[in-house]
Amino acid sequence: MVTAAPILMDTPPSASAKSSAGKSPFSLPTVAVPSVSAPGGLAAPAGETLVDISHLDFFYQTSQALHDINLKIEAKKVTAFIGPSGCGKSTLLRCLNRMNDLIDGTRVARGTIKIHGVDIYQPDVDVIELRKRVGMVFQKSNPFPKSIYENITYGLRLQGLNDKAKLDAVVEKSLRGAALWDEVKDRLDSSGLGLSGGQQQRLCIARAIAVEPEVILMDEPCSALDPVATAKVEELIQELRERFTIVIVTHNMQQAARCSDTTAFFYLGKLIEFAATRDIFTNPANAQTEAYVSGRFG
């Protein structure tokens, strides 16, 4: 049971669909190149609903992990998912770019997830295209055992971009975007595994933004990092919010309070409360939320 109703205004998802009206529906996928000033391709203006989750039920084989989730994520904002362990934060996050498809026996039993008004669980959706636009950063940093340069260009090369000059530009831009450039610019050809934990995580973020997604999903990106590295990543998130829509899962209340614009609190697979971060932390509408954010949970 959802006690706190979503407090966002319902904006029609048509805005984005209209903006693409001039293009043929069969247009080839576009590779974002560094010259694009407005990242994310078609820009959903800040504050508009980008991801619209409604009545979502999700199952792992027979066990239901998500119950009737209704959530609207705004473009160019940072949305934080908080909640006790096992409440379904990662599950929901992984629904957004359909990473759950990789696990046997998972299914969306009811409800829809719409991005730009497109239901991403429709059978005609190309998961690969979806994942290009909805990037992901994992809890455990997972740089590939390749050079830093190769790591960043991996996604673009997949799309057939092989122009050395362009790739160089993307690498620099992404690394700068991930606040890593100064630290690694002299050793782009050394292995990504040779970096420190924090650097590795920022490398993964750089890798994710290199393909210019619209949404970046981060699943506890700082849980394996020390406070200094965490601070750097948080800083980075602040910079990235200008260009990307970010959804972040975190166990760290302060982190949620510091970085996010809106916060969703989950408990036992249900969305309990979803509101502006300030409200959640200072004036929660729900008693469970209050107990959790104040650390009196039990």
């Binding site: 770019n97 990473m99 990789l102 690969i128 295209e129 994942r131 290009k132 636009r133 990037g135 992901m136 994992f138 455990k140 997972n142 740089p143 590939f144 055992p145 991996y154 996604g155 997949l158 799309q159 993964c204 890798r207 994710a208 393909v211």
Partner: peptide
Amino acid sequence: VPKGFREGSLALGATKWQ
């Protein structure tokens, strides 16, 4: 081969075969 390699690659929009 660590699972992260696969997930990381897929999350960047690689196809399974890639």
